[in-house]
């Protein structure tokens, strides 16, 4: 299994093969529907983004509440295609990795290739299992969105499968 240290480097991305298993270590950011909408609105209005997207990886995830004594609750991926309409804009602004489940649109696949980014799949419906790979979690933006806030997750050997990648 290929081990990848985040942030993503171009050379890491271009060497990946679709279908290949990999393990991610470093920082990823959760963002789902409403956070995507806000990020793209902020870009269009030329506002400063709450996180610097350059080289970063976004995880399509809205975790459960964190039980006492745990780092995070259940935290599996949500359906990626709902983010499709926002993704090309984020890639244009530096985003390089996405983790989710399911198919992407052709427009997203094209943008992934154009910007030499990567879309990973992770084990869908396995939020309890995936929680074990998260070492710390803190909300960093849009806290009013509750489970849809942007969380910064520190992950170790987070298991993914390469979906689409630019080369």
């Amino acid at each position: 299994m290929k081990k990848i240290i985040l942030p993503l480097q171009k050379k890491d991305i271009t060497q990946l093969k679709p279908g290949e298993e990999a393990a991610l270590t470093g920082i990823i950011y959760t963002a789902r529907d409403q956070a995507h909408k806000r990020l793209v609105e902020a870009i269009r209005k030329k506002h400063k983004l709450p996180i610097d997207l350059r080289g970063k990886a976004i995880y399509y995830c809205g975790p459960t509440k964190t039980p006492k004594g745990k780092v995070i609750g259940s935290c599996g991926p949500t359906t990626s295609s709902r983010m499709d309409e926002f993704t090309p804009e984020l890639l244009k602004h530096g985003l390089r990795g996405m983790i989710g489940k399911g198919n992407r649109s052709e427009a997203v696949a094209r943008a992934i290739k154009k910007f030499k980014a990567v879309y990973f799949l992770t084990y869908a419906g396995c939020g309890a299992l995936l929680a074990g790979y998260v070492k710390s979690a803190k909300p960093v933006a849009y806290r009013d969105l509750g489970p849809e806030a942007i969380y910064e997750l520190k992950v170790k050997d987070f298991p993914v499968i390469v979906g689409i990648r630019g080369k």
Binding site: C61, T64, P67, K70, S74, G76, G125, A128, A131, P159
Partner: peptide, 23 residues
């Protein structure tokens, strides 16, 4: 993938974590 799903169910039960974050 099936092994991960089965393992997830066991972890959910023992760790008292929701089987899926989408409750």
């Amino acid at each position: 993938a099936l092994a991960a799903i089965i393992k997830n169910a066991a972890i959910a039960k023992s760790e008292k974590l929701a089987i899926c974050q989408d409750t």
